[in-house]
Amino acid sequence: MPVISAPHEFDVSDLFVDLHPIFARHLYLKVEGFNFAGSIKLKAAREIVAQAEAAGVLGPGSTLVESSSGNMGVALSMLAANRGYRFVCVTDSRCNAATRRTMQAFGAEVHTITEPHPVDGFLGARIRYVQEMCAADEKVVWLNQYEAPGNWMAHYSTTGPAIASKFPELDVLVIGAGTTGTLMGCARYFQEHRPGVKIVAVDSVGSVTFGGAPSPRHIPGLGTSIRPGLLDESYVDTVVHVEEPDTVRICRQLAANGYHFGGSTGTAVAGALAWMQENCADRSTRAVTIAPDLGERYLDTLYDDNWVRDTFGATALAGDEERNEGRAAR
């Protein structure tokens, strides 16, 4: 058991779940929620902050500010608390209450945007607020996770190599797309070191990341209303779009088997299964996807029947009764 002196020094990087017993596919899930920030965003936050400090952009008296739907905000809140920075997270009304309270527990200030920009949605409104903060105070530093090279570099040096080492015969790597930092870092690594591995990006319906039509989205994590500056589609072989009710169903199916994950995991697994259903008739293809966080921050949303019913309709709960019956029979 390691002994640490700073919270960002601990991160479980070698845990994978074999999903074959649940979905009858050779699909493996890299679990990234076991660290003190509770998500994969710790890797990017740690690298972006380190690069900013090395460049002299961050220093004593600096105030960090970032736009985040949740997990990056929590990771930066933790790092800011440990390193003595003031931190302001600019989020929006889709950020769940547990995430907001976690940031505040670390000492962060949370500003919640309640009205989307008419063209660029909630993300556009958040970024405009961040820019106003920077213009008003020269001590405010925007790390800009949507364009910071440290975002993808963190995964090029950690996540990609960890997957490649564990799965030397991997066929497909399926990555959910938010800021696209994880996607770009892993895709770059595999193109250089294992070019035969197919890269599949998973996005939410309603996201504009890959040119889709914008529409309301309710689950934070994946998808954007502004195309991320980090994205280079030349590294991506194909894109799968997932409806949010499918995210809910997969999350609940995983939970019915004892695995409690967040919304981005449900979306990524749904996308991976859809791609494998269409492209892997012989069921021999070996694929890996990523679980960015765990499920406790989503108890009031994805795992609340009333929220699901009010948000997506009763059909989004279809299958729960059968899963519960199957669980009781075991």
Rank of each mutant, 00 (worst) to 15 (best):
V88G: 01
G229Y: 05
Y129L: 10
A201W: 03
Q131Y: 06
G121F: 06
D11W: 07
N279H: 15
R194N: 07
E244H: 05
T102I: 09
G33Q: 03
D232I: 02
T179F: 08
E32I: 03
R83I: 13
Y28T: 04
G271R: 00
D305E: 13
G211C: 05
D92H: 06
G326W: 08
M78S: 12
M153K: 15
G73Q: 12
A108W: 00
G107Y: 04
A98E: 13
A154L: 01
D137F: 07
R46I: 03
W275K: 07
Y156V: 12
N257W: 08
H193A: 07
A81L: 01
G229Q: 03
M103G: 10
I22R: 06
E47C: 11
R227G: 06
T91E: 14
A55M: 09
I199C: 01
P149T: 13
T180Q: 05
P7N: 07
V31E: 09
P161G: 11
D232A: 05
L173D: 06
G160D: 02
F106D: 06
V74Y: 02
Q253F: 00
M72V: 07
S93F: 06
H8V: 01
Q191P: 03
E66M: 08
S39H: 07
D237N: 13
N257D: 06
L64D: 14
V3M: 10
G181S: 04
R283C: 12
T289D: 15
Y28V: 04
L79E: 02
P168F: 07
H26A: 02
F312S: 14
Q131D: 14
V240K: 10
G266L: 06
L299F: 12
G121Y: 09
T238Q: 04
M184V: 11
F312A: 09
D310S: 12
L79R: 08
P21W: 11
E109W: 00
R323T: 04
A164W: 04
T301L: 11
R25V: 07
R227Q: 11
T289W: 03
A177E: 12
T267M: 12
V110T: 08
V49K: 02
P7V: 01
L123S: 02
E115D: 08
G61T: 06
E296D: 09
M184I: 06
Y298K: 00
T179K: 01
E132W: 10
V140T: 14
G221A: 11
V88T: 15
G196Y: 00
E32R: 00
R83D: 15
I219L: 12
Y189D: 09
V88A: 04
E243C: 04
V236G: 12
M153Q: 15
A52L: 07
L79K: 05
R46M: 10
